[in-house]
Simulated assay, not measured.
Amino acid sequence: MTASPTPSRPRVVDIAFWTLIGGAVLLILGGLLAATVSFETARSAIDPEVTNDKVRNYLTVYRGMGIGAVLAGAGLAFVAGRARRGDPKFRRATVALALAIAVVLLMLAVGAGVGQPMTLLSLVPIAVGAVLLTRRSAAGWFEQGERR
């Protein structure tokens, strides 16, 4: 008995994968930029009335957010790659991680005022990729893979 041929991956899954990878790359680049900001650069961009201690504290949070963005981008790229292979668990993980990244970045940007423009720009392709993974044709393909 021959195995049934695996259905070809829908184009929407490929598009979702590449938009998620693009968002992950922007997230990583923005995180690297934030993690490597020097004190002098931050001091020149912040109001002179703010003390050096407050600038250092702000810079610590800003750099921490950058390192977190790098780790989140790498994690997103990993789970998106696994989801592209047809694993429905990784599809759910990809969508969940994309939503978690969006919520955390928006909370940091709005609540704490620590938004790096490139990381905020990465939310657009990440959101598009997550929505595409939830489309009916993509969900149907993942369900077929789960039944195998």
Rank of each mutant, 00 (worst) to 15 (best):
A45W: 11
L108F: 15
T60G: 09
E49H: 09
M65L: 12
Y62I: 03
L121R: 03
S122K: 02
K54L: 15
L29H: 08
A100D: 09
A98F: 05
R135D: 13
Q116F: 04
T36V: 09
A16T: 02
A98I: 06
E40V: 04
R147W: 12
G68D: 05
L121Q: 07
T2E: 15
I67L: 13
V55Q: 02
N57W: 08
M65A: 10
D53F: 04
L121T: 08
V12F: 07
L133P: 00
P10E: 09
G113H: 07
M107S: 14
K54F: 14
R85V: 11
L29T: 07
A127R: 00
V12T: 15
G86M: 01
P125V: 01
R136N: 09
F90G: 03
R56A: 15
A72S: 14
G31I: 03
V95C: 05
R56N: 07
A72F: 09
R85F: 09
L105Q: 10
V124N: 09
G113K: 04
P10T: 00
V114N: 14
R82S: 04
R82Y: 11
S137Q: 13
V79S: 05
S4Y: 12
P7T: 11
R91M: 10
F17V: 00
L29D: 03
G115L: 08
R11Y: 11
E49N: 10
E143C: 08
V104T: 06
L99M: 13
T119F: 02
K54A: 15
I67H: 08
A42H: 03
G68N: 10
P125Q: 08
L123I: 04
A127D: 03
G81E: 02
I15R: 13
R92Q: 12
R11S: 14
I46T: 14
L59H: 03
S8F: 07
P48C: 06
L97M: 10
V110F: 15
A69Q: 06
F78N: 01
A138E: 00
D14H: 11
